[in-house]
């Protein structure tokens, strides 16, 4: 069965092609490219990717404009129906701004853009995105962001931890994130937002392959379903 994935491109997205290539490499099927001005998503999607970049020039707040675009309204609807949605970097910011994920991503605590490969621990290996990892495994993925400082109030953080919704945690100080949270799942487990870039770590030539299992997990979850 072909894996029907869509990748949304906003004005200012710059990781959309990387995400589409990663999905195709792993699933064997080309991802459908969707433009931000489209009001509707293609039918019967198995996966939606919101890429990194600087959608709408980061005007107002990172992800704020994209989160109010017609296509993201369609993404929210699809997510609420259970379609897996992965938001990477700016895509994570769009997911928090749209309300699909709790919290907010603020300016890095050290105020500088951080661009390097960082260690992450897999905090939940049960989700459809992370089943290909071992619980507690340390992986290495690149980060490249100015606003990745995850913030939520204490009660929300406690709830996320208690419900196993922290998917990834930084293994070192990166950006000032509360409890070093790097990736968060929604309550149903079909929406994942993360600042690190799995799509930039799918081939040895890219400097690492630790991101590959994330896409493989999603493809496997569909085949099993």
């Amino acid at each position: 069965m072909a894996f029907r994935a869509a990748v949304v491109t906003f004005p200012g997205s710059n990781c959309d092609r990387d995400l589409a290539v990663a999905l195709e490499k792993v699933s064997g099927t080309a991802a459908i490219r969707v433009w931000h001005g489209d009001a509707e998503l293609p039918e019967k999607l198995d996966f939606i990717g919101l890429p990194g970049g600087f959608s709408y020039g980061d005007y107002l707040r990172c992800g704020a404009m994209a989160a109010r675009s017609p296509i993201v309204r369609a993404v929210v609807e699809a997510a609420n129906k259970g379609v897996p949605v992965l938001g990477v970097c700016n895509g994570f910011q769009v997911l928090t701004e749209s309300g699909l994920l709790p919290g907010a991503l603020m300016r890095n605590a050290q105020l500088t853009f951080v661009c390097r490969t960082v260690p992450l621990t897999v905090e939940n290996s049960q989700s459809l995105f992370t089943a290909g990892y071992e619980q507690g495994e340390t992986i290495r993925l690149p980060v490249a962001h100015h606003d990745g400082n995850y913030f939520a109030d204490e009660a929300t953080l406690d709830r996320l931890e208690g419900e196993g919704r922290v998917a990834f945690r930084y293994g070192e100080e990166v950006n000032g994130s509360q409890r070093r949270i790097a990736g968060v799942l929604n309550a149903a487990g079909n929406v994942l937002g993360m600042m690190p870039h799995p799509e930039r770590a799918i081939e040895p030539e890219l400097g690492g392959v630790d991101g590959r299992a994330l896409f493989e997990s999603a493809v496997k979850a569909l085949v099993a379903a």
């Binding site: 107002l60 704020a64 109010r68 919290g103 907010a104 913030f151 939520a152």
Partner: peptide, 9 residues
Amino acid sequence: EKLLANMVI
């Protein structure tokens, strides 16, 4: 509340 401010922060 819908756009100008992010009520989380």
